Simulated assay, not measured.
Amino acid sequence: MSPLQVLGWKPFFQQQLSLDELNDCEPVKVMAVHRSQVEVTGERGEEAVLVHGPLFEDATERPTVGDWLLLERETRRPLRRLERSSLFKRMAPGAKQAQLIAANVDNVLIVSSCNHDFNLSRVERCLALVKEAGCRACLVLTKADQDENHEQYREALKGHRDLPLLLVNALDRSSVEPLREYCRSGETLALLGSSGVGKSTLLNSLAGTELAATSGIREDDSKGRHTTRHRALYAIPAGGLLLDSPGMRELGLADVGDGLAATFADIGALAAKCRFADCVHESEPGCAVQSAIDSGELDERRLRNWRKLEREVARNSKTLAQSRADDKALGQMYRTVQSHARSRKSGEE
C-alpha cells in the first residue's frame, strides 16, 4: 500500500481530482483540528496548515478530522476540501448549527460498558447517526470482567439482531483482538460513547501502545471525566486509523431521517400493516404496532424512544433550515451593500 492508501485514500477521492490538480496539488488527511490550524499527514509526512480566509468562512465547510484537503505543492496553501464519503455531526445543546465530529469514517464502535452507563436508548441514538452515514457498526461493551451477567445485555439487544455485539475487557489486548476486523489497513475506525466507558483504554489496547490518556470513573454512577480533550486520528502499527473523541453527553440528531428509519425498521414494517395510513400508534383500532407491544414482540420503550428521536430530528432539522436561510439572507445583504458601495465609488470617479 502507498502512504496515501494507508491513510484511507480511495478511488472515490482520486476521481474528484482534475488533471491540473493531479500535477500541481497534493492530497493530505486531516488528523487533528485546532482553532486556527489543522494537523495533516500526506506523502511528505506530518505538517500544520493554517485554516483561515474565504475557503473556511462557512462553519459547515471547515475541515474536520478525517477530511482530505488539497494543498498546493509549493506554497502548501489549502485550495479545497474533497467531497466526503461519510460525515458525522451533532446538534450541541443550544446550538443553531451542527457541530462536525468526523468525516470519511468506514467503521464505528459504539462503546458502552457493563455498568450504569449501559443505556439502550442512547445506543439507538448513536446507531441512527451511524446508519445515516452508511458506516458499519459494532456495539462494544467494556468492563465485561466486572459483571458476569452478560445475558442481560444480549436480551436487551434482541431488537437489534443485525448489530454485532462484543463484550470485552479493554485492558486485555487478547480480549479486544476480534475488534481488529474493524480497523484494517486503509480504513478509519471511530469510537462513539460517553465519558468513562473506556474508549481511550480500548484505543490503546488496539494500538498496542499508549496513544491516549486514561482516567478512572466515579463508582456511584459509573460516570467518567472527559479524558480526551479533542478529536484526533491515530495511525496504528497494524494499519488503519483510529479516531478518539471527547465523550459527548449530548448527541443531538438532525438531518438523519434515513438513519432513524433504518434503526427502527421493525416499527416501520409494523406501521405499514396498520389499518389506517395515518395511524399514530396509540389507541387506533387495527394498529399493528400496539398489537406487537401487547404480544411482547415489540418493547414499548423502543416505540417511545422512536417517537422522541423523531420529534428531536424534526425540531433540529427545522432549526438548521432556518439557520441556513438566515445565513443566505445575510450573505445576500452583504453582497448588495458591497455592490452599492462599488457603484457609488465608480460614480464618484
Rank of each mutant, 00 (worst) to 15 (best):
V6P: 00
K10W: 02
P11N: 12
F12L: 11
Q14D: 12
L19V: 09
E21V: 04
V33F: 01
V38D: 03
E39M: 08
E43R: 12
E46V: 05
V49Y: 06
G53T: 00
T60Y: 09
E61G: 11
T64R: 01
T64L: 09
D67W: 02
W68E: 09
L70K: 07
L71F: 05
L71Q: 12
E72H: 14
R73F: 03
R77L: 04
L87N: 07
M91S: 09
A95F: 05
A102I: 05
A102D: 12
V105Y: 01
I110W: 01
N115E: 13
F118S: 04
L127H: 01
A133M: 02
R136M: 01
V140N: 03
D145H: 04
H150V: 06
H150G: 13
Q152W: 01
G159E: 13
R161C: 14
L163D: 14
L163W: 12
L167N: 08
L167A: 05
N169Y: 03
P178D: 12
Y182K: 06
G186M: 02
G193K: 08
G196V: 06
S200D: 06
S200L: 06
L203R: 06
N204T: 13
A213D: 00
G216P: 07
R218G: 08
D220I: 08
D221P: 04
K223H: 15
K223P: 00
G224D: 06
T227E: 02
R229W: 04
R229P: 04
R229E: 05
R231N: 14
A235W: 03
I236C: 15
I236Y: 09
G240E: 05
G240Q: 11
G240M: 12
L242G: 12
G247C: 08
R249F: 14
R249N: 15
G252R: 09
L260Y: 05
T263I: 05
F264G: 00
I267Y: 02
A272W: 01
K273Q: 15
F276H: 11
S283Q: 11
E284R: 07
C287K: 01
A292R: 04
E297G: 09
W306I: 02
L309V: 15
R311N: 10
V313Y: 02
A314E: 14
A314I: 05
N316D: 04
R324M: 00
D326M: 06
Q332R: 06
Q332G: 13
V337F: 10
R344V: 06
E348H: 13
